[in-house]
Amino acid sequence: MSFSPELVGQVENLWTRYPEKKAALIPAMHLIQKERDGWFSNETIVDTAELFGVPDMHVRGIVGFYDMFHATPVGRHVVRLCKTLTCKLCGAGELIKHVSTKYGVKNGETTADGRFTFKLFECLGHCTTAPMMLVDEEKHESLDIEALDGVLEGLK
């Protein structure tokens, strides 16, 4: 399966910014992941490798190494809750427990209705407004249980 012409255009644009194509792999892979339902299937990995002219095992290694790429199918949304020191001190632990009891998902799991995949993340860089989480590409800060439910229940 080939990529959409728009995506290929964006990747080609990325290539102009680096000394070699391979260097644009990570920004390009974010675009590719978005187009391919949020995760890298074997087929997507092979397609990416072909587009870049690198071994597919190299792309596989990148998917395995970086937390923001997924090697297994994900829900319609990806919820990343920060679990690092500041957020933990400000109550992230409570939120994790709440998500587990109310929505039935632990770290890395997807809700039964496929609405979202829940992931615990290392520091997302918003310690001043801890605890915080990232839903897809949108951040939600100064969370408590009520605010968290408001966000998660609003997801389609």
């Binding site: 095992m57 596989r60 395995g64």
Partner: peptide, 8 residues
């Protein structure tokens, strides 16, 4: 290119 490195 059969071998790769997974995880970290």
């Amino acid at each position: 290119d059969e071998i790769g490195i997974d995880f970290r």
